[in-house]
Design a protein around this nucleic acid. Structure first.
Lengths: 219, 219
DNA sequence: CATAAGATTATGCACGCGTATAACAAAGAG
DNA sequence: CTCTTTGTTATACGCGTGCATAATCTTATG
């Protein structure tokens, strides 16, 4: 009985890398980092294990790429929400906050994926820099949206407000994702808007017509 | 050359279990979950690998015990700070918040340890319940401290405030631990006190004589 | 001091991991 | 239509893992 060699198609480098990264992310989200073995990743991506080393020098390199992709995606999903919304500063800030506290950003898989890389961030200098850049990028968007409120506050206060709002959103994101049934429908979004408003001295809940919107893009 | 059998001492069940749990926690904190192999844990605890199975039916059982111990410890370190402080509600709340945002609670190892268990929390019903209990316990302490402020607010608002303050503290705790150099000395504590105060409409920074205290117990 | 009990060590196994390398085949070039 | 390139598969190796079991040493008890 001859073992027939498996047939395959050649794909572009970008496609293959994206497939492998996506497979890695889905596996980590589902079963934690230990589920993302090279064999499992390859199977999920529809290739054989050896191919991973053709596109990434080592598994760690694939890991880093997956983390970078995750962090970039989370930030960009927030800013996507700014596209389809009015020009009022309060409205824009509210849309950004709400988008960060709703699926697909608010998602247990995303939290697990994020948490799964946490320990690698220490010790791996390159990953740490990826994390820091992503964190700063998100916070900067937030700070710009806050600054646009034009309440005439000094820059140093602005920085503190951005850090605090970021932390608040992060905390709600984690617990809201992991313990969804511990909160009422929409409670996390409402709480986020109300609390960010309280931190900044504005009323965001009044500027949130988009709260009952059809869902956003999942890409 | 005969290999001499290693000499050992018998220890109480509590001691051995505590040692193994502590070894597990330290290893995860240092190198992530994958560093906590049965052999590494045993070596760190000063025993041989087989002994683990004498005290825990499976490695997962040890893992659960370690997580439970971690969560309990974080909450209790916060409430410890309440012991040595005055009776003013603001002062007590400020002490609790500050303790949660300072070492040894604010610590990269602790965050990594916490994050390392995140994915196990999903899927493992028992771990999930441990997590939920710990989260609720911490939040309840917070809510009681907030209620003691006696601002005469309805219970449902109280609940929301506790969730938001908890999230804020969590978020500051994570980023403050992982990116310590991204913040100025004491900035996280000050920001936490200021922001929690803003959420509740009180001034906590005015009630924080203990900010420059000698360090707390590390137990 | 003898004895029993069980805490602890020692050894081995089967399996899955990441990596290396060689054989193969798909696709473009001439 | 053949040749060359290289994306892709296939196979194997060495190592570390969690777990099982047997041997042995410590300690409590009488």
């Amino acid at each position: 009985m001859e073992t027939a060699r498996r047939t395959y198609r050649r794909e572009s480098q970008e496609t293959r890398r994206a497939d492998l990264i996506s497979a890695t992310q889905r596996l980590v989200a589902e079963g934690g980092p230990e589920a993302a073995t090279v064999r499992a990743i390859a199977a999920r991506a529809g290739v054989t294990a050896g191919l991973i080393r053709h596109y990434f020098q080592t598994k760690d390199e694939l890991t880093r790429a997956a983390y970078r992709s995750l962090m970039d995606g989370m930030t960009s999903k927030g800013s996507d929400a700014l596209e389809s919304v009015g020009a009022s500063p309060e409205e824009r800030l509210a849309a950004f906050v709400a988008a960060s506290l709703r699926p697909p950003v608010l998602d247990a898989g995303a939290v697990v994926l994020w948490a799964g890389y946490m320990h690698k961030v220490r010790g791996d200098a390159e990953l740490l820099s990826v994390h820091e850049q992503a964190y700063t990028a998100y916070r900067d968007i937030l700070q710009r949206l806050i600054a646009a409120l034009k309440r005439d506050v000094p820059d140093t206060q602005l920085r503190g407000e951005a850090i605090a709002c970021n932390a608040l959103i992060d905390g709600l994101w984690v617990e809201g994702s992991i313990l969804p049934h511990a909160f009422n429908e929409g409670e996390i979004v409402t709480l986020g808007l109300h609390s960010v408003g309280a931190l900044l001295g504005v009323d965001l809940l009044a500027h949130t017509a988009m709260l009952t919107d059809p869902r956003k893009t999942l890409a």
